[in-house]
Write a protein that binds this DNA or RNA. Structure first.
Lengths: 228, 228
DNA sequence: TATTTAGGTATACAACTGTTCACTAAAATA
DNA sequence: TATTTTAGTGAACAGTTGTATACCTAAATA
């Protein structure tokens, strides 16, 4: 997650107050096995299984840890799921930063964004696999968390477009509605991308093209949108 | 499924050939408990659980049948899932017929279609719950089946629009791309509709409005689309 | 240094899982 | 009517599940 030792949570700030140099090895190890658990869950889903079909014992087994150790980190499988949602949120925000940094040659900007996105999904396929799966299927609390994360993402995207002065004739509300649609479409496309047959470059190109056209439709609609 | 006795599959066509009047009570009963099994699965998912978290024994218990009886109908939970996908396909096609029959007052047609859809999702919430959940989460084979069903639906929709001479400047390919986007958006909306807090008319109205605007965006984009 | 804290292990338990098998009884066939 | 088929049963199986318990040991604290 973070390589900054200062980011490690500490329950008691230590009585000597300020400048406790670093809490040292205990919480480090804890954090590490926690990540092993999260990683294990993601690995088990790589074959295409949904999160809700995983069992606690499977996960601890994959993580190389005794079943009971699980409870030192999460009280529940659901809680682990929520942690995964949070990690996905970070991943998504990183994507946004990546696209933002790309500066726009406005002609091909949409297509190149799609290509960036496609590669990004492949690089982070474990997170997207989880998100795409749990979005509709997970427990209600996980579903809700994912939806909140998506809304967050859509809002950031809308704010970005506002700052870049794109589609300035749209109200902020309308911009958010549009970005919501884009996010939905992106998530759905992620699911398609992940299920692409491995070596089939033809199918991949086709899918990309469809995706580009769909986004183009949305942007075109936004451009000719009138008033509120 | 079908009330037509002639639709019942028969392995040996009977040697007396033609006009076997009706195979009678045995296959009727079989069909009935088969539907009990499908129903049981849908019922268990009503609380929000995903299909992949159901167990064979749970389903037979809910259906009021011994566990071993399951194998007389499906070899697998996966196979039952595929049967559910097929049932969903029928449901979707029924929806299309319903909307088609509505005849279009083209001004408010989009909004009224959305309302129709919303009610339809609520009426058939069990099927949509399953579809929305298994679309990303289920086993690979179920996911694939759902995707095929969605594509079918999108294509029928495109053909319908062609027949009604809507957006005549679009190529058939482009129409299909657009309908694909609409179907995706609809499916996502279904998930939102199902998770609506029960009595909240305000939230419902808001969601409907957002949904309408998103579709309007797509249609607007389609109207101003140029060439291939 | 002595004491406390807490991440992790091993073991045990009752509950549940998917699947098999021999069986019944009623319907379909000959 | 006699025979065969077959949807459904009930008991048994080996595995797996989630959770509780007592315990160990290294790090953190006093």
């Amino acid at each position: 997650m973070s390589t900054d030792p200062a980011a490690v949570a500490k329950k008691k700030p230590a009585r000597g107050s300020a400048s406790t140099p670093a809490t040292g090895k205990r919480s480090e190890r804890k954090q590490r096995t926690r990540e092993h658990l999260l990683d294990a869950a993601l690995s088990l889903m790589e074959a295409g299984r949904g999160f809700s079909s995983l069992s606690l014992r499977e996960i601890t087994r994959e993580a190389g840890v005794a079943p009971a150790a699980f409870y030192r980190h999460f009280s529940d499988l659901d809680e682990l799921g929520l942690a995964l949602v949070e990690a996905c949120g970070l991943t998504l925000r990183r994507l946004l930063r990546e696209v933002r940094r790309q500066e726009l040659p406005p002609t091909q900007m949409l297509r190149s964004s799609v290509v960036t996105y496609k590669d990004y999904v492949k690089d982070n396929h474990r997170y997207f696999r989880f998100a795409a799966g749990a979005r509709g299927g997970g427990s209600p609390s996980i579903r809700k968390a994912i939806r909140i994360e998506e809304a967050h993402f859509a809002n950031e995207m809308a704010q970005d477009m506002r700052d870049l002065n794109m589609l300035p004739h749209l109200s902020m509300d309308m911009l958010q509605v549009m970005c919501g649609l884009v996010v939905t479409t992106m998530m759905n496309a992620a699911s398609d991308i992940l299920d692409l047959p491995a070596g089939n470059a033809q199918a991949e190109k086709e899918m990309t093209e469809t995706f580009v056209m769909q986004l183009r439709l949305v942007f075109l609609g936004a451009r000719s949108w009138l008033s509120s």
